[in-house]
Design a protein around this nucleic acid. Sequence first.
DNA 1: GATTGTGAAGAGCTTCACAGCT
DNA 2: AGCTGTGAAGCTCTTCACAATC
Lengths: 222, 222
Amino acid sequence: MSERARIPKPAARRLSLYLRMVQDRIEQDGAADRVSSRELGEVAGVADAQVRKDLASFGAGGQPGVGYRLHDLHRGLRQALGLQQPWRAVLVGAGNIGRALLAYPRFAQEGFEIVAVLDRGGGVVGRRIAGHVVQSMANLSEVIRRSGAQLGVIAVPPDEAQAVAEALVEAGIRGVLNFAPRALRLPKSVPVVAVDFTEALERLAFEVTASRPGSGRSRSGG
Amino acid sequence: MSERARIPKPAARRLSLYLRMVQDRIEQDGAADRVSSRELGEVAGVADAQVRKDLASFGAGGQPGVGYRLHDLHRGLRQALGLQQPWRAVLVGAGNIGRALLAYPRFAQEGFEIVAVLDRGGGVVGRRIAGHVVQSMANLSEVIRRSGAQLGVIAVPPDEAQAVAEALVEAGIRGVLNFAPRALRLPKSVPVVAVDFTEALERLAFEVTASRPGSGRSRSGG
DNA sequence: GATTGTGAAGAGCTTCACAGCT
DNA sequence: AGCTGTGAAGCTCTTCACAATC
């Protein structure tokens, strides 16, 4: 019934990229209603065979000579990623990043709803931001219990991140999205995904430096 | 002289995590001035031997029985990541995400300077944000030439992202940090690093769903 | 003709295990 | 005793190659 195929982690990451492309294609809908594994592979930077394996991993099938049907793929990808159900999240931290997240329309489109905003209290508590009254951290477990939120989003300064994470876990949160540039130590049963701007910039600096002429192959691409 | 060791990509990603921990330790500086490979491994989620290989890949050495010296490691990591030199970046897009980035103190701390802010023009051009007067996209190449910026940060709506990226490349940018949830197609010589909030949430949803009891191993961690 | 599905080969990263240093 | 450095083994992901399908 609810058998869940084993999907390798690198594959799961690519599924998001496939999903994005499929969504974009559907919205355009001027063109074909199929995609080939080669097109999807270009988006994710892998070979077409890899895409076919990724898609097969959760049971999606294509038509030889034609490709994959956009709508079937859309449904399959969303189910494989666990997006069939809506997700509710509490946001902790009403600073700049928190506000940007509240204003990010894509979350709602994907089925993620921010049901509450909390902050430590430095003058923000009680204020209204994007339709949410910012609540005190003292209310955390009650807010989570009443809203039924399963996810927590951490957008506080790094020094507070670990404490907030532990409070979230204690309150029954099942997964954490961490925007603070600090590694969190949580039980393995609570997955953490980190979004670290600095790390991203560092990766970019590394790749730019590494791809600089004189540091390796000279002109391999084209 | 400027020999650059070959550093595997997964290793490079971990170097950022090591760097963050080393920085934190140095700032605390109440404790020891050494780190062991095991401690670093916990942060990155890999075995200690892997850490030692990562560090050896750019020439860092530790002391048997003691560990790695924080300050040496700090210097080595920054050099390996290409952070010895300061980086200059132009930010395109003065919306919510762009503003949050401008207010993000960590960038400057790491040696990244946002030298200019540009936007398509919908009323924001000419306004002052965080000390920057928002400029029109028409000025892009001039701004880049005069500032000597090497990196571009894209924080515009998805539909505009590809065009902005191409304009950046044409103006001589050498690397792109992309916050728009859209895959960019650029010459291989210009690395792109994507920060995609939606993808992160999807990864979280996937992992939470996958780690749910009844979908695989029941309680392996503990 | 174009594209999928998949076994087999290949590449790369990770862990193991242990000698050697402090 | 504790930790590093590293060859060898192990594992996972990726690509190759090609028969099967539309």
